[in-house]
Design a protein around this nucleic acid. Sequence first.
DNA 1: TTGTAAGCGTTATCAG
DNA 2: CTGATAACGCTTACAA
Lengths: 342, 342
Amino acid sequence: MKQKITLKHIARELEVSISTVSKALKNSDEISDDTKEKVQAFAKLYNYKPNNIAVSLKNKRTKNIGVVIPDIVHHFFTTVFRGIEKYANEQGYNVIICVSDESFDKEVINMEMLNNGSIDGFIMSLSAETQQKNDITHLKQVVDQGTPLVLFDRVTDELECDKVILNDQEIAYEATKKLLKEGRKRIALATTESYFNVSEKRADGYRQALNEYGMEVDNDLVLVLPYNDIQESMIEDFYDRAKVDAILSVNEIFAIQCISVAKKRGMKIPEDISFIGFTDGLLSRYSNPTLTVVAQHGVKMGEIAAKMLIDRVESEAEGSIEDTYRTEIVQATILDRESTIN
Amino acid sequence: MKQKITLKHIARELEVSISTVSKALKNSDEISDDTKEKVQAFAKLYNYKPNNIAVSLKNKRTKNIGVVIPDIVHHFFTTVFRGIEKYANEQGYNVIICVSDESFDKEVINMEMLNNGSIDGFIMSLSAETQQKNDITHLKQVVDQGTPLVLFDRVTDELECDKVILNDQEIAYEATKKLLKEGRKRIALATTESYFNVSEKRADGYRQALNEYGMEVDNDLVLVLPYNDIQESMIEDFYDRAKVDAILSVNEIFAIQCISVAKKRGMKIPEDISFIGFTDGLLSRYSNPTLTVVAQHGVKMGEIAAKMLIDRVESEAEGSIEDTYRTEIVQATILDRESTIN
DNA sequence: TTGTAAGCGTTATCAG
DNA sequence: CTGATAACGCTTACAA
């Protein structure tokens, strides 16, 4: 195992001082061309690379971004992450990722783990449990310590920081209106059991559209499903008790499962019933019929979040005036596919 | 922005030396109970946490693992990553992730970015391009420098290092035999256009089973598809020119698409044609019919890879004898679902 | 043009 | 029991 080469080695070998080597490698004009050449040649030969850790300690900048998300085996978060990673790498930043697994405790532990110098800032989306408890002291602490933080998608109003969100309510409103325009009279909403601010906002948009069309919001038309372990019988029961001719679903899994049960019951899609789901994942693309979806543009969200964070990190480093926090809104779009009439 | 508190601050405040503080916080018995109490109370009050970067510099250990994978928006890699992250976090390690995007250059850049002190070791799966070029000098360099490296899934025989792989050939053989036992006579293989060692091994298992049943391997029965942008017509053409009654697919997307086209052609599944695909992702679970798959147990692979890496990192730190490199084989299993006769 | 020295925050050795 | 000092690898005033 060859030891990694350091400035000290080069200095010793070339019989110059460490600072001379350091400057020579930075092409400083304090150093003679001769020496520079000699040092640079030697460094290249031995493939010298400055030790990141030492540089970080000196600069008090790590060029690492901490990402804390509830789940990685989930298409939306995956795409956001992709966007973060893409932009960050372009800017020479690495991404350290921690998964909270929808658990408050894991979220806290992970953030503490990272917030001791390992990272320059956080990008995160709140875990289900955190949203439920509505306890964000760990976030406040991070912000208080001066660590930049960007929240995306699952955000909270209780914290002042940069945020990136989707126009959830508006697009849910648009999606519902699309169904209304198809002539649907009994539009259901399939939503999550646990509390997510985004589900809430989507429900708001749904209600808004119905109201606008002078329709009452019928609670029988709201199908609440658990995050995991969905039993088909739940959906069966729903179809039994509520006559529906369209479903807006807050995610694609619920939509796909509702479609599946509908097909088994002999309902024709989109003639008898039409579907729109949130999230443009694999399922909606390859299902039969393909699912009309609300595309959340995760990659874009990720890029924006990363840009916001890095901008802030770098402006703080330069000691420039902190402008106030911003909330960027990504515009979702509806992708028409076979589960609706177009 | 409150400054992060350091040993120095505590020392100054309490009018003791830095080393006393350091020892007191470590509960060293060199320090009087009085002092320890005082220091610890103060530290807790001000929420002192040692600076990771400084500790890393001192120890020459970062407690960071670098993961380099071809793609994150891909169920298999996502699950492996989940396993890595899980085990690593349990052991107090963070995971830094870089995506090579199937590109050789990005793989090289990412690894250089990380291999300058940021991480204690690598876990990676080769990009498509790297496998194609078969150029692994960047890996050799890493290993030469003494950085532990664990390869998983897409590995290479050209490099001596720890590896975690699936019993690809064997399970493809089993899967094919399952189809043969159903009485299938014209079993096709749907595989990738670009070269992956795993696709190759799966093809070997497929051929082996056919041979065992005294059947010739008919090249007309091999459907080669591109990684992206699959046109339905390719599959249409395939069905036109080759009469098939079963398809083994090296991934789930190909299988789902073949199913979709088969259904459109009025073929009954699994009566007329049956399907098995690699990867137990969402698609196979929610497709119609559900897809019988080879489960690759990604989470387990990830955990094993992380364990191998961390074991090696820690044994090197202790200077213990390096045993030779190991290759762990994860046993895949076949999950029977509706696309085969069970 | 080159080198010395201090410092980033810790830990560990050794003296007091 | 406590503290000074050196070291990890690098950068950067400031001397020479």
